[in-house]
Design a protein around this nucleic acid. Structure first.
Ligand SMILES: [Mn+2]
Ligand SMILES: [Mn+2]
Ligand SMILES: [Mn+2]
Ligand SMILES: [Mn+2]
Lengths: 218, 218
DNA sequence: ATATAAAGTTAGCCTATTCTAACAAAATAT
DNA sequence: ATATTTTGTTAGAATAGGCTAACTTTATAT
């Protein structure tokens, strides 16, 4: 049995491990907004349960079992977000908090039905990949918009670190997944980019915004 | 803030109070499958929070605030069951356990959407009334089938104490809400009733089964 | 009117999850 | 090579929610 609390730690570890394959106590503490000593004890407990590999002062790694459990929670989270947007009329900026709760529902049938009704979606409303029933996930190799060059034409595929406020910002600027963007200019000084897309002929996006836009080259 | 645990106690009290307007520790203990001393401490806590009126050795009553909170949880439970059956293709015998979890989701918007999508339903898949947004509930005055007379024709309106096994039993006997039933015979000895409905010309239902069928006279 | 049974309470203990304060190790800067 | 900062650990305490054992009160049956 994995408690809701333990599930949240596993999911946090999973997200932090995407790049480096490991995470540390401090990062996890910040991500979950839980103090380090608490995270430390939980790591001992999860190690006891064979869900993580953990030795004092060393980075934390998920075991295969832990990785699969975590992926299945991420699957439930992202399926839920997709269901809320596609079948219940929510905006992509309204679903994360609800999914954060629904992801803990214990009922394989519930999520199987969601998956079927949605037609086995591969991505969530923010473009993040949905792990399959076995916990396998394919991390597509998108580029951050801030690293693209002037003159390039790209397509918005996903949003990174998608807080509700950032998503509302994108709504306000008529930017959504699939939008085709041409980079008109790029400021060396602060990384500001001037973009042309849809109706917008020269919108200036900050470095902080561009960093979060994951695109694919046309 | 009312925790999930507290919500379950409030809901239990609400159900037990339907008839007498009050409940006692022993009943609640059995309903929730939690030992009496634990229930006792929780009653003190809920009294502290002004959600129940409680004095030692006296029956427990919900305050107006407690009653409303409980009704809103019941609302979420029943809306969920309706959504699962009507919009996600579940059978009426598969939804209770899931609703038991979903009822604790904190998101008024989530349940508002459900309610809209369902067209503001007044009853759940088992015929139980759904409290409105203010927590008001109208308990319709149905009759238990076992109390009806031979020769009477009635309509099945709701199922009481609807366990999954009982609902599966009804499925197997092609009995569902709306079924028109004629009472052919009634055995004095054990209360068995012979029923005629739909394709079934003379099905014998035990007292225990009839007790759980709530009907309206034609 | 007792005696017995059922219901309710108290006391004390347990696990899960969190925190703060103090200390230790590792990483970074001078 | 130190000194300082950052990261990690330990110890001790708190709160929520649950349990058993023992005792008390109320209800029921002789
Ligand atoms: Mn999310
Ligand atoms: Mn969560
Ligand atoms: Mn139910
Ligand atoms: Mn519940």
């Amino acid at each position: 049995m994995i408690s809701n609390t333990e599930e949240n730690y596993l999911k946090g570890l999973f997200m932090l491990s995407v790049t480096k394959g490991e995470a540390n106590v401090n990062e996890l503490s910040k991500l979950l907004d839980i103090k380090m000593p608490t995270v430390n004890s939980m790591m001992k407990k999860l190690a006891e349960k064979k869900l993580v590999i953990y030795q004092s002062y060393k980075p934390i790694k998920l075991t295969e079992e832990g990785k699969k459990a975590a992926a299945l929670i991420v699957r439930k989270h992202r399926l839920t977000e997709m269901f809320l947007v596609e079948k219940m009329g929510f905006g992509w900026d309204e679903v994360h908090e609800i999914a954060e709760q629904v992801e803990h529902i214990q009922s394989p049938l519930f999520f199987k039905k969601m998956d079927e009704i949605l037609g086995h979606p591969k991505i969530d409303p923010h473009g993040s990949p949905i792990p399959d029933k076995d916990g396998n996930i394919d991390n597509p190799n998108y580029h951050q918009l801030n690293e693209c060059e002037v003159g390039q034409s790209v397509i918005l595929k996903a949003v990174r670190l998608s807080s509700d406020t950032f998503l509302k910002f994108l709504n306000a600027h008529q930017m959504s997944l699939g939008t085709i963007i041409t980079i008109t200019a790029k400021e060396e000084f602060d990384g500001n980019m001037t973009l042309s897309y849809g109706d917008q002929k020269s919108q200036v996006f900050s470095y902080k915004a561009c960093e979060r836009l994951l695109v694919e080259k046309q």
